[in-house]
Write a protein that binds this DNA or RNA. Sequence first.
DNA 1: GTGAAAGCGCTAACAC
DNA 2: GTGTTAGCGCTTTCAC
Lengths: 329, 329
Amino acid sequence: MATIRDVAKLANVSTATVSRVINSNGYVNDETKKRVKDAIQQLNYLPNDVARSLFKGRSKMIALFVPDITNPFFPELARAVEDVTNQYDYTFVLCNTDNDIEKQMDYLNALQQKSVDGFIIVSSTIKKEHLQHIQVPIVALDRIISSDISSVTVNNRSGSRQVVQYLKSIGCQRIAHVAGPEHVDNAIYRMRGYLDEVKEEAWFNSSYVVSGKYNFDAAREAAMALLSELPEVDGIFAGNDLMGAGVLNAAASLGKNVPGDLAVAGFDGIAIGETLTPTLTTMAQPIYEIGAKAAEILMTHIQSLEHHVTAKEYSVKLIERQSTMKGGF
Amino acid sequence: MATIRDVAKLANVSTATVSRVINSNGYVNDETKKRVKDAIQQLNYLPNDVARSLFKGRSKMIALFVPDITNPFFPELARAVEDVTNQYDYTFVLCNTDNDIEKQMDYLNALQQKSVDGFIIVSSTIKKEHLQHIQVPIVALDRIISSDISSVTVNNRSGSRQVVQYLKSIGCQRIAHVAGPEHVDNAIYRMRGYLDEVKEEAWFNSSYVVSGKYNFDAAREAAMALLSELPEVDGIFAGNDLMGAGVLNAAASLGKNVPGDLAVAGFDGIAIGETLTPTLTTMAQPIYEIGAKAAEILMTHIQSLEHHVTAKEYSVKLIERQSTMKGGF
DNA sequence: GTGAAAGCGCTAACAC
DNA sequence: GTGTTAGCGCTTTCAC
């Protein structure tokens, strides 16, 4: 690989001049500029980013922490972040954390040693204290970390209320909830939204809420038990789509017709909802948008070196599909 | 951030000694080693990886190119690669290429400027010529680039033959194929495997093969047309699971019972196959394993600086599910 | 308008 | 065993 010195030599100038040319910085005579550009071309010269990073103390890299990229909610988020990252000529580092605090701390350190310029973090275990030693901007995504860290989220609670209202509106009389993990804030908001709408109902009691841990299998099991125990349930709001799929599968196994006997709605709006049979009604997040927004905010923080906290909350939107279309399916 | 000089000063030694301690390199008196370690602790010192990279010309980063992480085949692959990467104390860079050759070239250049130590590439557009200027090891994954580049793949052709044989064995008389894109080598192998098994059949003609482009919607449309035109089809081998899901959906729309009227099998073994109704029979790749293997091979190449080409082919395995279980479902 | 030189933080000869 | 020193390739004052 050619270096700046090779270029300088070939163009008969100093390295400073070459640097000025490649960075369009300071005055350079048009004549010499051309000589330098020719030399660059001829040598196929590309500046060494590592040397630049060392000098500048910044690397033009940002990192995204997700619990697990194989969870179908995250790829779209990652895609959005990568697209924006790339658009700003930054490099995108992906870290699967499994929500393990130690793993996250290791990543934070390792990446700081690499002068990573910022972090976008989806985590339900990282707290403000864990980030005290981080010198670069951070944006929390999907889940809030603390009020002094910028965040991008959705209206989980009111969105969930809307789902339940919708289920009522199509005629459901007994609506159960398959909830996400208790230690994940958005799962709690979704459950609260559900409770807001049902806690005053005469029929309601706590056995209408079961735990599905945000995954397919657990939700399937939970729904099997729930539907056996409370056969009068005619509507289920699953805290995410993956659990919604589990509920559909459980219903099929029990010979329950969806949506005839049972209406099912999920939350998130991930792509697989459309591939299921019946297709799954869901309260959709603008997943790509929130990912892209988080990246944009991070870029703003990085470039201004200013830390004005912004907390953006997007609205979710109901997408009606076969799993609740009592008339049409 | 403290530097090696701060540590040296505090411990009353030279930077060379500190370097020896942090790299467990060369002889250092136990006494002074302790002093250095204390100083490191006290200052919370972490070596600057950028400076190291500049000196060494290597960055301890590797990059994975995938067409699009939102395609459900890739997250598991990415997860595997990241796990291995992390285990070797490397940093993982993810690039969505959309199979766009220009984007891929840009990434290659940008990452070379960052001294990335190696690439794992899933691409149907990159050819050997595009990689001529790359100085670091490359491993091709899922799709072969050229015979002198290490690769990890599966037996697409014989695996596909097995799927068709299996469909015959459960009684299918007219088996159609929804094929992937013509410019993707593994899609071609899968189609050939299918043809190997049916081209001598009296009933066979080319209208039994339709194109589904490896995606849900195209496959759904193709299957709708196919099933309308050739109602005698009682078995479909879809070139991947995403298209298998499309076929299932099409069948449901047409009121065809799966597996009663029509058996459906896919290829890949991605997780959503289990969430469908009926669940989808598939010829499963060991996705995580092949991703991990590719990463291991890359690490070997990186560490030995030797370029012994290895081409590993894994075997796929049939997973029988409801979409073909004529008896049980 | 251009060049000389210092320095980003580290490692590895090479001395002693 | 430990220190001195010369870079890795770049950017940026500060001269001229």
